[in-house]
């Protein structure tokens, strides 16, 4: 914060340095936030009813959109993969192709993206509004830890709901593919499900499971963090909500790549 203007050459460096400091500082806050939230998960008292409410909020209320998107993803896969496979005369592998793409990649990723759009944004907005209307300060001055009441239940609910929603997405998607492949395009039912059973391993299912589990943490972590550190007024809440959705979506895809290269 010097008042004397810097030489032009140094000004660029100064800007770069400030930017770097800012980025490292926010990353540190972001990490510390999760650490503190995890600490409140591991120490009593546990806010059980807040946790149930969050499962209701993140999970149950997202059921419809999960079923809808899962079904149509499966149907699109069924159609497109069939059209490709039929050229090689290997349409018998439609079942495994649909199931494996859903279970390993599309299920966890698309379910996470959908839930981010529906519940993640609302989570950020809700916590953001609690921040700007001083409800979070009210908790603090009651000598209660707001992380315990707002963040810990959300992260735990993310851990529980994301794998379940991914499983629902997968199953509905597989039946969507069945509708198109078997009912519409005339593949035999036995081929569709039989080949699927031969090709899909428990390992594939576990890969999808670990992915969805980690997405559950990433999404709730980003969304509660953005809500907690909201700017001023309604504009701040709007910006935090957008930021939370964008950052969650990007992190889901980046993290999916890393998980994909680490997991078998």
């Amino acid at each position: 914060m010097t008042d004397r203007p810097l030489p032009l050459a140094l000004r660029a460096l100064d800007a770069l340095g400030q930017r770097a400091t800012y980025v490292v500082d926010s990353l540190g806050r972001f990490g510390t936030f999760l650490g503190q939230a995890l600490a409140t998960i591991l120490t009593p008292p546990f806010k059980f009813w807040a946790f149930i409410d969050r499962i209701h909020y993140i999970g149950y209320r997202s059921l419809l959109i999960i079923v809808l998107t899962g079904g149509f993803t499966g149907m699109v896969l069924g159609l497109q993969v069939y059209l490709t496979l039929v050229r090689f005369g290997s349409e018998a592998y439609l079942g495994p192709a649909v199931a494996l793409s859903l279970i390993r990649e599309l299920g966890p990723v698309l379910a996470a993206l959908m839930v981010t759009g529906r519940a993640g944004s609302a989570l950020t907005a809700e916590i953001g509004i609690m921040r700007i209307t001083e409800q979070i300060d009210a908790l603090t001055v009651m000598a209660l830890n707001p992380l315990r009441y707002l963040v810990a239940p959300s992260i735990l609910a993310g851990l529980v709901t994301f794998p379940l929603m991914t499983a629902i997405f997968d199953v509905v998607g597989i039946f969507g593919g069945y509708l198109v492949g078997v009912e519409l395009l005339g593949l035999s039912q036995g081929t569709y499900f039989g080949e699927m059973q031969t090709f899909v391993d428990m390992q594939d299912i576990m890969t999808g499971f670990w992915k969805s589990l980690s997405f559950g943490v990433v999404v709730t972590w980003v969304c509660t963090y953005k809500g907690f550190n909201v700017g001023h007024g309604a504009e701040g809440v709007a910006k935090a909500t957008t930021d939370a959705v964008v950052l969650s979506s990007v992190l889901i895809l980046v993290w999916d790549y890393f998980m994909g290269s680490v997991l078998p």
């Binding site: 509004i129 609690m130 209307t133 001083e134 409800q135 300060d137 009210a138 603090t140 001055v141 009651m142 000598a143």
Partner: peptide, 19 residues
């Protein structure tokens, strides 16, 4: 700090009721 806050009551500007 929480120990001191046990003795406090605070009325915030907008009420800050949990909605």
């Amino acid at each position: 700090l929480d120990e001191i806050r046990q003795r406090y009551g605070v009325v915030f500007q907008g009420g800050a009721l949990f909605d």
